[in-house]
């Protein structure tokens, strides 16, 4: 059985924990319970050529109080960068984390999830900006941990990127 470690990274409060909860347990909580350090969950996926277990590392949000510890990514096969569509700065932070991770661990497969799509009316990241990100070749998926939109797709997109790497 193949097991892969993937990390959830991004600014605080963007919905990393909520995306994992939605994906693993199919639930959503409006309340904000910040993650300190890291919390690990597992989820089995049925892929075309067999079973894959994702070991999901839900990392604490990156901020001045607790900068991301890059050592947590050791052994990771890929990561999900999460930004909050309502907060433009979180996309800058995602970009910054992406280059820091690549600097230490090399180029790993990743997916960018722009979360809180259910609040699209309050989104503050322009279509232009998202188009520029896509133009860089970043796989971008709009998600909502609240409605579940795009959540399975995010993880399965990353999973198939990992399996491509295996071949």
């Amino acid at each position: 059985m193949i097991q892969k470690k993937i990390c959830m990274v991004g600014a605080y409060g963007v919905g990393k924990t909520s995306l994992v909860k939605r994906f693993v347990e199919s639930i959503f909580d409006e309340r904000y319970h910040t993650t300190v350090g890291v919390k690990i969950d597992k989820k089995r996926l049925q892929m075309e050529d067999g079973e894959l277990t994702l070991v999901l590392w839900d990392l604490a949000g990156d901020d001045e109080l607790e900068p991301l510890r890059l050592s947590y990514l050791r052994g990771a096969s890929g990561y999900i960068l999460v930004a909050d569509g309502c907060r433009e700065s979180t996309l800058d932070i995602a970009g910054d984390l992406h280059s820091r991770i690549a600097g230490v661990h090399g180029a790993l497969p990743f997916v960018l999830a722009v979360n809180k799509m259910d609040l699209e009316a309050e989104w503050r990241i322009s279509e232009d900006r998202l188009a520029r990100v896509t133009a860089l070749g970043w796989p971008l998926i709009r998600t909502s941990a609240k409605t579940g939109a795009g959540v399975d797709q995010t993880f399965s997109t990353l999973a198939s990127l990992l399996l491509q790497d295996l071949k």
Binding site: K5, T35, V36, G37, V38, K39, I40, K42, V55, R69, S71, Y72, L73, R74, G75, A76
Partner: peptide, 30 residues
């Protein structure tokens, strides 16, 4: 499960230094 990443870091550390400590950072378990 957290130690999966830390044990290799720890072995590197033991091999590399004469004396000292390396902290893993926090993890949370249910």
């Amino acid at each position: 499960p957290f130690l999966d990443s830390f044990l290799p870091n720890a072995r590197d550390f033991w091999a590399r230094v004469e004396a000292g400590s390396l902290r893993s950072g926090t993890w949370v378990q249910r």
